[in-house]
Design a protein around this nucleic acid. Sequence first.
RNA 1: GGCGCGGUCGCCAAGUGGUUAAGGCCGAGCUCUGCAAAAGCUCUACCGCCGGUUCGACUCCGGCCCGCGCCUCCA
Length: 455
Amino acid sequence: MPIQLFDSLERRLKPLAPSHPDGVFRFYNCGLTVYAPGHIGNFRTFVVNDVLRRLLELEFGKDKVKHVRNLTDVDDRTIGQAKKENRGLAEITQHWTKIFHQDCAALNLLPPHAEPTATGYIREQVNMIECLMEKGNAYRAPDGSVYFKIASFPGYGALSRIQERELQVTNAIADADHKDSVSDFALWKVYKPEEDGAVKWTGPGGTGEGRPGWHIECSAMSKSILGDTIDLHTGGVDLLFPHHENEIAQSQCCNGTTFARHWYHSEHLLVDGKKMSKSLGNYYTLGDLVAKGYSPMAVRLALLMGHPRKQLNFTLDSLHAAESALANLRAHRASLATAGAAHEAFAPVLAMLQDDLNTPGALGALFTIINRKDGEPDAASFDRVMFALGLDLQKPAAPAAAAPGAITALAEKRWAAKQARDFAAADALRKELTAAGWAMLDGKDGYRLEPVMKK
RNA sequence: GGCGCGGUCGCCAAGUGGUUAAGGCCGAGCUCUGCAAAAGCUCUACCGCCGGUUCGACUCCGGCCCGCGCCUCCA
């Protein structure tokens, strides 16, 4: 069964298939701007794309998928952050790239086959801008910046179905005086010493120094690494407009052919019913959650508990639920013989994923099959499903927090009382521990202490 | 104002024009266990409101209420 995925442009489910003769599926996923740690909303998108990547590998073969995910390392925010910290741009972006890679590894994201950066493709971006200027799709404004002329591309707005006149005019006025139309967007931004510091490159012919606008990087990197036409382009819904709309305009005007055959956008993550914001106190990075005692694998599972094309309300409760569910999966895996019969016991789970990436449906099917205790255990099929979901059951659960000395002492005392069969004393001590927020779990030859997880 | 999405069990969340509306978490009862935990068994919804279409709608259509997102550099 082919993978069916919703196409944001045509607004319907379409099967996914490679279009190039080499049979390699070309997949571009808009990545992170590296000026701060990624938040879990960013990671929702990347986890969803990772499941997609894994499904594509299962469908077409490991070497028949080319996955590109870029890093935006020059824009207003990265430059702003560097300036704020009085450090070099590269220093800032390399630091956050390193953190991003650590987070990705913790979440078990397969590394993309290429991870281009905007600064690594300046030449390609400049070439593309020159191409657009030559073709009459871009113009140099009086201030030296270069803008894309939206009026020159009749197809503009097809993806977002937004008309120029529908745009709320309030905040589009910023540098309108330089543009032919308020809706035109920057391809090349002229150098401004007071803002840009040392950040500048030689611009397209006939213009001065400066830096690329945001949108052109994806068009240029996609073209350079994957070719003029790619099979799938993805990102969060917020990129649909203007970013992806602008990419289509740039790429199709320059290349004269279809840019992406399929567009896919994952919805936003909400936290406690609202978009994350630091002022609401509902803004989480992976590090924040790990510090609270949750495991990255549980975060991954929690991010998969909602349909990717629906807003997902993330709460600490849901994360707690994921942690428990993960423990059940580990227990189930341990109960399976290593070499299971190959009868595809878990095939319905993959079928759910292949049907528009229905991750919650897949998880439902997974647990339904686990709960139904008839049928032969099938470790191979189970493992294939875990691979598709990217759930690494080998990764440790959240590390138990170390108990304070006073707690340890109480526990020792209780263990001794228990060994002496003084159950009254033992029970009293258990109560004390519970009151202090610690659960004492007795084993055959010893005990474990666990903090009682508070909601 | 424009565009789009959603309101299903305490929480999270699938799903279908018509047998018992998945699943996870939490909770409750029972079994087991000195106690607790783990494990096992069992239990918990008529699908925002009002109309319409239909033999039949939670599922289709219309209206309303509520929530959320995007509208030039936010995944």
